[in-house]
Design a protein around this nucleic acid. Sequence first.
DNA 1: GTCTATACTTGGATAGAC
DNA 2: GTCTATCCAAGTATAGAC
Lengths: 236, 236
Amino acid sequence: MAMAKAGARSARTTGGARDRSAATRAALVQAAIETLREAGFAGCSAREVAQRAGCNQALVFYHFGSVSGLLLAALDDVSERRMAAYRPLIEGHGASLPGLAAAAREIFAEDLAAGHVKVLVELIAGAPSVPGMGEQVAERLAPWRELAEAAVRGAVGQSPLATLAPVKEIAHGLVAGFLGLEMLAELDGSPAAALALFDRFAALAALVDQAGLLGQQGLMVLLARALTSREGEGRR
Amino acid sequence: MAMAKAGARSARTTGGARDRSAATRAALVQAAIETLREAGFAGCSAREVAQRAGCNQALVFYHFGSVSGLLLAALDDVSERRMAAYRPLIEGHGASLPGLAAAAREIFAEDLAAGHVKVLVELIAGAPSVPGMGEQVAERLAPWRELAEAAVRGAVGQSPLATLAPVKEIAHGLVAGFLGLEMLAELDGSPAAALALFDRFAALAALVDQAGLLGQQGLMVLLARALTSREGEGRR
DNA sequence: GTCTATACTTGGATAGAC
DNA sequence: GTCTATCCAAGTATAGAC
């Protein structure tokens, strides 16, 4: 998928030329991420990005066809690298809710610092100005949503919590939360509030995990009782 | 605050001229909202907006000084009108958690349909491309965050839930959730997933409210016990 | 593959007529 | 207050030299 544009390169280039080409592409992609982060989608002109990459503006069009092509390649790059980093994290600790919370916190702190979620946010927000881009961005977001779903399923799939809401819904909320927290962190100029919320989530997860001792015999029964008994509802 | 730019109008204009001026300003603001919604921040040129408003491009600069000035005025307009609509909703039903959930659902459904949250999302995302705009947007978001905080305080302030997380944190998460759900709804081309999540939230709120019968004597004791008793932790 | 040069378009912003 | 006309800056994209 990241190689979708590789055809732009001749199949017979020499090794050195290929290296240089790859280096240029990589530099442009990195510069695009940086520009998206610092100047937003609206600040991402071919000239601006090329300048940061230390190369010529025309190379954006040679390698990626258009500015939006470059931005999508940047999203691919971030996605691929981050996905590779997160999957083991989630598959490792993800069997428990506290593990998921801790993993999510680490991931998010790292991504806030590196601006990875910002790339996504900017592309989602900027997409409507480029015909057809919304679908392209949605395609690239899909694996993330699946990863979130898998993480939630692994963490609460067989616990009583799963009966409170479908895994898909919880995952949707999680992804939305990531995006929203990123925007607020950007606006506030600080990720503190977002990280505090994650810490709180981790603490609550630990609490629920211990309450999980109650399991079907405890927590669930309690909730079920609350759901069914409607007689004493005079609470003001 | 919405009158900040009123000085652009002479103090001695005739009644008719003032009406026309106000109408033009209003048309531009409405067109800006519509453009932000359909083409995003990056698609909001003075020419594009003016065309939708059915007036001349130069009037953007006459009335608002700059394109970003117009966009901020659009945000002011949305904020003011929506705030007026929500405050009674929240103050009316907000004394209970289910009331808050129901109110939030109504608000959000309306705003999704009208694109009000989109305006905010686009301005937050687009802000980094205009020097100083981030602060302006943050200022305008502040009342919303306070409203969310007041709503949360009113709904869970004296309930056992409030001891699980500070009201400020919950409110921060709520606002982030609104923003993130808006982005996903936009990308999906459908608010269904967001609304389903709100419905779930409302259902859980009703559940918690009924569990609130347990109050300090029930739910809290349970949670406290889970927090302190660590001896039987052999749960696999 | 990369550069320079350039054609063309769009956008921000202002001057001046009405 | 609104419009036309216009200037200028910035952006996309391509052609052609190296």
